[in-house]
Design a protein around this nucleic acid. Structure first.
Length: 489
RNA sequence: GGCCUCAUCGUCUAACGGUUAGGACGACAGGUUCUCAUCCUGUAAAUCGGAGUUCGAUUCUCCGUGGGGUCACCA
């Protein structure tokens, strides 16, 4: 049988890092097994409806390179549903769920419930006070048939609940092994809400069957609801799919990764200047590592190496530090041309006037200092415009102010004698200046320190050769002149 | 609290029942160097505790402890 998996996000308007994690593993698993993947939008909670969320979701999945075979896709900005198992948006499948719920009522597995939310919460409070499990007390199960019919006909607000049978429910999780739960632990779960929408439990079972899903790979938080689903499968006579529950990504305090403790959306990391390649790589090896000795993997490698059984059971903490390092590694591996195009969207107003030529040179020399793309503004500032700096900073630690002035004057004379062509090649420039230092018997730091500070205006920067190469002959000479003026003032 | 579940350096992880318990991030110390960054080398850093099975447990079993998840007309 062909492997079929599903991506089942609720359309919240952004992609959670945890969702990316489970989507990636679904993707690797499906691709490796030559299967098909379905995108299904789980929008049965109309109180959380977000305008444009589905479009945003499709766009970000596409941007992250997660492709799927069936489900809603974007064509000319419009949502088009592709595949023969649709519709793939749950709010468009209401009638199907309703029929299924009715069917369960007819055979006596489910029942109508007219209890108000107020009564329910009162009951719950009392149970809590008595330290009893908080479960529905089945008041409405005892209602006579005629009364139920009358109240439903009268349009009284009601829900439909599963009548959980006695016994135990066991299933096998591909990652954790056999799990058994006593049915007495389960509540008579609502499957159809008062507004006519199904709850997750009904919708997911009905859809996974009708969309022919064979493998359900999702986050660990769903484990405790599997037995409910299994009971529904049995009632409907559906074959049971394979389950794998992934560990949850954790906050530094080990709680479930949440908005409260920092950014959790993929979009926000992209906006900060993380490369999608680095983000993908990093999220992928959280909980799964093919070798243990390698850190940087291509998506292709991960897909081939992926094995559901090798996914770790415990939840990893999301450590931004390592992501930062990895992002820097990816940046360093980028070609100059590629880096320029990646960095451009991060340029502030002033920075946008930089020519591609200059930006290329800046990227060339600064990429070892860059770990996220947004740092380009800070890193490029001294090339765009010389900032203010103190006269003292021009003086090397082993030297004096007078000497700094002398060295700068002399190197100015020397650099003036060099042809513009030499300024075009960083190697020639470096070679020339070094030979100058050697031939005049000067101390390296004595020349290079004041030169570098005069060109960058900073005590920490790229080398003077690199600086001069980026800003060019004219600007180099003018900045040195500026420094000597400061020193003689 | 009930139920389910998890447990190797601070963090991410590796280790057919037999290894000096390996790698990476971070930290620290060196090297390269005019400075910073990069790069290279090195150091410190872990099998939660207790029983049991075994010639031998990080690895298997049980108990304890700790963490997490879940107990909605949210997914």
């Amino acid at each position: 049988m062909k492997v079929r998996t599903r991506l089942a996000p609720s359309p919240t308007g952004y992609l959670h890092l945890g969702s990316l994690h489970t989507f990636l593993y679904n993707y690797y698993f499906t691709k490796k097994n030559g299967g098909e993947m379905v995108l299904r939008v789980e929008d049965t909670d109309r109180t959380r409806y977000v305008e444009g969320a589905i479009e945003a979701l499709i766009a970000i999945l596409d941007r992250m390179g997660i492709s799927y075979d069936e489900g809603p896709m974007l064509e000319n900005g419009k949502i088009v549903q592709k595949g023969s198992h649709g519709p793939y948006i749950q709010s468009e499948r209401l009638e199907i769920y309703r029929e299924h719920a009715k069917k369960l009522i007819d055979v006596g597995h489910a029942y109508y419930c007219f209890c108000s939310k107020e009564r329910l919460s009162t009951v719950r409070e009392e149970q809590q006070k008595l330290k009893r499990p908080t479960k529905y007390d089945r008041t409405c199960l005892a209602l006579p048939k005629e009364e139920i019919e009358k109240r439903v006909m009268a349009g009284e607000s009601h829900v439909i609940r599963m009548q959980i049978p006695e016994g135990k429910t066991t299933f096998v999780d591909e990652i954790r092994g056999e799990i058994t739960i006593d049915n007495s632990e389960m509540d008579d779960q609502v499957i159809l809400k008062a507004d006519g929408f199904p709850t997750y439990h009904l919708a997911v079972v009905v859809d996974d069957f009708s969309m022919e899903i064979t493998h359900i790979i999702r986050a660990e938080e769903w484990i405790s609801s599997v037995p409910k689903h299994l009971i529904l499968y049995e009632w409907f006579g559906y074959p049971i799919p394979s389950y794998a529950h992934l560990p949850l990504i954790l906050n530094p305090d080990k709680s479930k990764l949440s908005k409260r403790q920092g950014d959790v959306s993929v979009e926000s990391y992209l906006e900060k200047g993380f490369l999608k390649e680095a983000l993908l790589n990093f999220i992928a090896i959280l909980g799964f590592n093919p070798s243990g000795d390698q850190e940087i993997y291509t998506q292709e490698e991960l897909m081939h190496a992926f094995e559901i059984k090798k996914v770790s059971k415990s939840g990893p903490i999301f450590d931004v530090n390592k992501l930062l390092w990895m992002n820097g590694q990816y940046i360093k591996a980028l070609s100059t041309k590629e880096l320029v195009s990646r960095v451009k969207p991060f340029l502030d107003g002033e920075g946008q006037t930089i020519s591609d030529e200059l930006l290329g040179r800046i990227c060339d020399v600064e990429k070892t200092r860059m770990s996220i793309l947004s740092e380009i503004n800070e890193l490029s500032s001294c090339y765009r415009k010389l900032g203010e700096y103190s006269v003292e900073s021009l003086v090397w630690k082993k030297s004096s102010r007078e000497d700094a002035h002398l060295q700068l004057s002399e190197i100015h004379t020397f650099l003036s004698s060099l042809s513009p062509e030499i300024f075009e090649k960083i190697e020639l420039l470096e070679e020339g200046i070094k030979r100058y230092i050697e031939e005049t018997g000067k101390e390296t730091g004595n020349v290079l320190w004041p030169l570098r500070v005069s060109l960058s205006g900073k005590e920490k920067s790229a080398s003077p050769f690199e600086l001069a190469w980026v800003i060019g002959r004219e600007e180099t000479l003018s900045r040195i002149l500026h420094a000597t003026a400061l020193l003689s003032a």
